[in-house]
C-alpha cells in the first residue's frame, strides 16, 4: 500500500514537472521564471536595500554567468564544468541558498573539512554578490562605487565616520604626527 502511494506520488511529480518545463526549455529554467525585481536587503545594518532589476540584467547576460550551473544552462566557468556539465537544473537557483550569509561561522568552517567537498573556497553571500556584481560592472563600465548601488544609512555613517558623523577638520589640523 505504502509503495503504491509512493509510486503514485512520483508519477504525479513527474507529470507536473514535464508540464511545467516548456517544450523549448526542456530541463532548464528561463529568466521569465524569476521575479523582475529582487530586493537585496542582507546589509541593511549599514546600507539601504538594493532594488536589483533582474529582468534588465537577464537581457544583458546569460543566466549561467551569475547562476553557474544551477539553471540547467551549461556553466561558463571551466571549474564548474568539471562536475556540472550535465547535472541539469538545481533544486534552487537563489544565491542565498548556496552562498551562506554566515561564511566564517565555526560550524560552517568545520563542515568544509569534508574531503568529498570541492566547494571549500565558495564565497559567502556578501562575497558572491560583490565579486560577481563589481567584477562585471568594472569590466563593462557600469557604476562600481559603493554608494552607486546601496546608499549608506545612519548606522553606516556612524561606522564610516562620515556624513553627520564626519570628523571636524579643525580637530586634526595640528600638522604634527
Amino acid at each position: 500500500m505504502r509503495t503504491r502511494n509512493k509510486l503514485l506520488h512520483c508519477a504525479l511529480a513527474l507529470a507536473i514537472g514535464t508540464a511545467l518545463s516548456g517544450p523549448f526549455t526542456a530541463n532548464a529554467m528561463d529568466a521569465s521564471d524569476a521575479p523582475d525585481l529582487i530586493t537585496i536587503d542582507s546589509l541593511t545594518n549599514l546600507y539601504g536595500p538594493v532594488e536589483f532589476d533582474h529582468a534588465m540584467h537577464a537581457d544583458l547576460a546569460d543566466c549561467a554567468l551569475c547562476h553557474h550551473h544551477t539553471t540547467g544552462i551549461p556553466a561558463q566557468d571551466p571549474n564548474c564544468l568539471r562536475c556540472h556539465a550535465t547535472s541539469g537544473e538545481a533544486d534552487t537557483v537563489a544565491c542565498a541558498d548556496c552562498h551562506t550569509a554566515d561564511r566564517f561561522n565555526k560550524d560552517y568552517l568545520e563542515s568544509l573539512d569534508d574531503p568529498m567537498l570541492y566547494h571549500v573556497d565558495k564565497p559567502g553571500l556578501k562575497g558572491a554578490y560583490h565579486i560577481n556584481c563589481i567584477g562585471c560592472h568594472v569590466e563593462v563600465g557600469a557604476p562600481s562605487g559603493c554608494q552607486d548601488c546601496h546608499v549608506m544609512n545612519d548606522s553606516g555613517q556612524q561606522m564610516f565616520k562620515t556624513g553627520d558623523y564626519a570628523p571636524d577638520p579643525q580637530d586634526h589640523n595640528n600638522g604634527g604626527h
Binding site: 564610516f160 565616520k161 562620515t162 558623523y165 564626519a166 570628523p167 577638520p169 580637530d171 586634526h172
Partner: peptide, 9 residues
Amino acid sequence: PEPAKPFDD
C-alpha cells in the same frame, strides 16, 4: 580614536 578623515574618503 576618531580618524582625521572619514573612512569613505
